[in-house]
């Protein structure tokens, strides 16, 4: 359930292109034809699906404050648990991404030259696609809890990006038959269409909020009796009533 929710949320509500405006450059530059858009989109899904979990592991076991505690089993800032390497996260995330992209390029070239030829030029472009780094940074700042969820998030964001570039490529193929003012043709009208599509996608944002915080509190209250005690004092002193908790 949790996976499904995160999956759809990352495709539609937090769509990389329309909600966070990441990965715009390659989105605008490589969307002239549906076939090339599909190639690039597939590559983005793959790279996101691989790099987000890898970066999750890096973040969990190396980068975050106290993450090195597993080396000597220490806690509370003694020994290795006292290190906070989060200043290295940008560098390590980028290195992972660039390495993965280059690795994918080498593997594809070796085993499937035909795929490489149709995809080849787009692969290096992915390293500079900010949607990829954005995926890892969001994963870090939103505290995604498990490796499985991180993978789901990576795949979901990738699919969201794929759908976006597919949609704009299809529109651009059709718009050739429309009478667009000459100076707007090509890039100009693409910018404007994307703006309109983004406005449309904003309506998904309404599904985002509501009840998250409350649910979390209820869950905690069931687990720990101490919490109920606090809630009780709160209710008697200020007569707070909360339907969910009582």
């Amino acid at each position: 359930m949790e996976h499904l929710e995160l999956f759809f949320k990352s495709i539609f509500i937090d769509n990389m292109v329309f909600a966070t405006f990441l990965g715009m450059c390659s989105y605008l530059a490589v969307s002239k034809k549906v076939s090339t858009a599909v190639g690039l989109g597939a590559a983005v899904i793959f790279v996101l699906a691989v790099t987000v979990p890898i970066n999750w592991l890096l973040d969990q076991y190396i980068l975050r404050d106290g993450a090195l505690a597993w080396i000597d089993g220490s806690s509370n800032g003694e020994g290795y648990s006292g290190y906070d390497l989060s200043f290295l996260s940008f560098i390590l995330f980028i290195a992972t991404i660039a390495t993965m992209v280059q690795l994918v390029e080498i593997v594809v070239e070796k085993f499937s030259p035909s795929l490489y030829n149709s995809l080849g030029i787009f692969l290096p472009l992915i390293a500079v696609n900010c949607a990829i780094l954005g995926g890892s940074l969001f994963m870090q700042s939103r505290d995604i809890q498990t490796l499985g969820l991180a993978t789901t998030y990576g795949i979901g964001s990738g699919i969201g990006w794929f759908l976006a570039i597919l949609a704009i490529a299809a529109i651009r193929e059709k718009i050739r038959y429309s009478n667009v003012p000459a100076p707007l043709r090509g890039l100009g009208i693409t910018f404007i269409i994307t703006g309109l599509m983004a406005i449309g996608f904003m309506s998904f944002g309404g599904m985002l909020t509501g009840g998250e915080e409350e649910e979390e509190e209820t869950a905690v209250a069931i687990k720990t009796p101490a919490q109920e005690e606090i809630n009780e004092t709160a209710t008697t002193v200020v007569s707070t009533t909360n339907e969910k908790e009582n």
Partner: peptide, 16 residues
């Protein structure tokens, strides 16, 4: 943010 896209689109129009 969508309006930024549209403004850039209009700048392109003027420029071209």
């Amino acid at each position: 943010s969508p309006m930024a896209l549209i403004v850039v689109g209009l700048i392109i129009w003027v420029q071209r």
